[in-house]
Each structure stands twice: as C-alpha cells, then as structure tokens.
Amino acid sequence: MNSFHEKEKKLNNALNKLKNLELSNPDMQNNVESLSTQKNQLEIEKSELENKYKLLLEEHENLGKKLEEIQNREKLEQKKQTEFSEKIDELNQETDTLLEEIDKWQM
C-alpha cells in the first residue's frame, strides 16, 4: 500500500509539473516571427523582381520593334541604291550609244 501512495504522489507531482509547464517556447516564438519577417521581405522582393521582369519584357519588345524598323529601312535603302545603280548603268549605256551615233555622223 505504501508503494501505491508513493506512486500516486509521484504521479500527482508529475501532473502538477506538466500543468505548470509552459508550452510556448520563447525561442520558437522568436524564430517564427523572424521567419515571418523574412517571408514578408522575400514576397516584397519577389514582387519587385516581377515588376522589373515585366518592364524588361516590354523594353525587349520595344527594342525588337525598333530593330525591325531599322532593318526594314536598311533594306529599302539597299533597294534604292540598287535601283539608282541600275539607272546609272542605263544612262551610261545610252550615253555610249549616243557617242557611237555621234561618231558615225562625224565620219
């Protein structure tokens, strides 16, 4: 019987200690707060990076359009130069023909 009372007393002491045990760990609470702060900071950084990415995509698209315009203008200029060279060749041929005709008339 004595051991039963001792066991009961020990059990009651253990239960009292468990009741008095504080379940919240201050280090754990600090870690949770720190992680929450870091999470918020990362979300802000993510949002900023997404905005920068969108701006870069828009800038890339605009630069692509400008490059295409420049290439089109360059092609047009090359075409004009080719046409001009052809016209000069035609005029040279006509001039040669006229000079030959003049030489014939002078003889």
Rank of each mutant, 00 (worst) to 15 (best):
E100Q: 15
I88Q: 08
E43F: 11
L42M: 07
N40G: 06
E69G: 00
M1Y: 08
L55M: 08
E8R: 13
E33M: 07
K54S: 05
L49I: 01
I88G: 01
K10F: 02
N31H: 13
S36Y: 06
N30G: 06
S47Q: 05
L63G: 03
H5I: 13
T97L: 13
N92Q: 07
K17E: 15
S24M: 11
M28D: 14
K79I: 07
M107C: 08
Q41L: 10
E86V: 03
M1H: 12
K10C: 11
D27N: 15
I44A: 15
E77P: 01
K104P: 00
L76F: 11
N40H: 12
K65C: 00
E83K: 09
K80A: 15
S24P: 01
L91E: 03
L21E: 10
N51F: 09
N12Q: 15
Q38R: 10
S3L: 14
N72I: 01
E45S: 03
Q29E: 14
D96E: 15
R73G: 07
N25C: 03
L11P: 02
Q78N: 05
L99M: 02
A14H: 14
K52T: 11
N13A: 13
T82I: 11
I70A: 04
L11T: 01
E86M: 07
K7I: 04
L11N: 12
Q71G: 03
N92L: 12
E48Y: 00
E8T: 11
E101L: 10
K39P: 00
Q38C: 07
E83T: 05
F4T: 02
L57P: 00
E74D: 07
E50C: 00
N25H: 11
I70S: 06
L35Y: 02
L98I: 02
D96A: 12
L23A: 09
E43I: 06
I88W: 01
